[in-house]
Design a protein around this nucleic acid. Structure first.
Lengths: 215, 215
DNA sequence: ACTTGTCCTGTCATGACGTCAGCTTACCGA
DNA sequence: TCGGTAAGCTGACGTCATGACAGGACAAGT
């Protein structure tokens, strides 16, 4: 699928090369977690990886390019998010369960990858198509499943016809992502982590089904 | 309130100085709209303003500092968002109207200031307290109003008791902000601008009142 | 004209960026 | 075993941004 890993100047990377490359990616990941995106320098990443800046430029055109690589890896892992909604029901108690587990899984995924997701979000907001496609790739699984669920309920007449499933699903996913990014902001608003989740689940359930959940 | 405008080395700025300072801020604002945050350099801002980097550093410690200044100005303008909810009703047709106007006003505000808000969002997500307080300041007016509305309905028994008004309000506001930031993303998901707004309004109404709006 | 305080810039040391040639290492076929 | 070849890494270099300073330009009051 991914063909061969290549250096910037076209050589194919061997075992050793791939290891260095990966080490650089790992170090970059760490740096992104510990310092502002704007302050992450190639030289620091290289130093941390025990190599030189020139080596970095062998494998990546720039910091952005390396970030895209990390995000790509994460995006494939993110496909697992689909399972949170695969074959779930939105009716009755099961629906409440579905909403809760979606929120749980989503927040957990975001928490794990928050540093890189921040950067992806920024790139996407800035209009960079590469980041923006990546963001879609990550959110698509959840988004499509949600849209399908809404469309299905709509077909049964349980949701108004003038609702746009894609718009509602997209908005809910955006909400989950945003809340996950700013979780800490809530605590200083007097909302605790534990309280946040059920309320989010409630909103998701309301959005999808148009009704309060039966617990 | 803001006392006197001062340079980094403590002198008070006169008429001319304030003009240059403001010009630098304006140019920075423009640069943020046209190029990625990471690539905005002091030297470019200074050139655009027809001055030198040294002058920039007279008024701001660094790019981040200047951004904070711009954001601060925007935050005071953002207080106008309160009017979107001041004394509005969430009952019946009026409720639907309220939700629609909130969405409209919010998206408009975000669209106008998207470049700077992107940076504030990033800073807040990265855990920088200054950005993070600023973000609260901007969103507080809307958030508090929404929370009050929910709490009021809750007191009347029209919203479940185990709902946390602050959590719901915060989540809804986060949703609005996120959707506004990624408006373009929706179009490529096959959702048009015009369709987005009513669906957002629907979600807001559902979240606040727990019920579908009567149109 | 002269002083005073504000305002701007030339200049400099420092350090990051990004490129290149060239050295070292590993692999492989004869 | 021994080159040959390609992979892998780095020192060194020109370029550019950063951030600090001292001193020149300018406006205002005396």
């Amino acid at each position: 699928m991914t063909g061969q890993v290549r250096t910037v100047d076209g050589r194919v990377a061997g075992r050793r090369g791939q290891a260095t490359r990966q080490k650089l990616l790992d170090c970059l990941s760490e740096m992104l977690s510990s310092s502002p995106y704007r302050d992450v320098k190639v030289i620091d990443v290289a130093r941390k990886a025990g190599t030189s800046p020139a080596t970095f430029y062998q494998y990546f055109p720039d910091v952005e390019g390396a970030v895209l690589e990390i995000a790509e890896q994460m995006a494939t892992e993110g496909a697992a998010l689909t399972e949170l909604l695969e074959g779930r029901s939105w009716a009755g108690k099961a629906g409440w369960q579905t909403a809760q587990e979606l929120v749980d899984g989503f927040l957990e995924f975001w928490r794990k990858n928050d540093a890189i997701l921040r950067v992806v979000d920024l790139g996407a907001a800035e209009g960079d198509k590469r980041f923006y496609k990546l963001r879609m790739k990550i959110l698509n699984s959840v988004n499509n499943s949600l849209a399908d669920a809404v469309a299905e309920l709509q077909a049964k007449g349980r949701v108004d016809k003038d609702v746009n499933p894609a718009a509602v699903a997209g908005s809910l996913v955006a909400m989950l992502a945003a809340v996950a990014s700013h979780q800490k902001g809530f605590t200083s608003w007097g909302v605790k982590q534990a309280e946040l989740k059920p309320n989010l689940a409630l909103l998701v359930h309301l959005g999808v089904t148009g009704r309060k959940p039966t617990r």
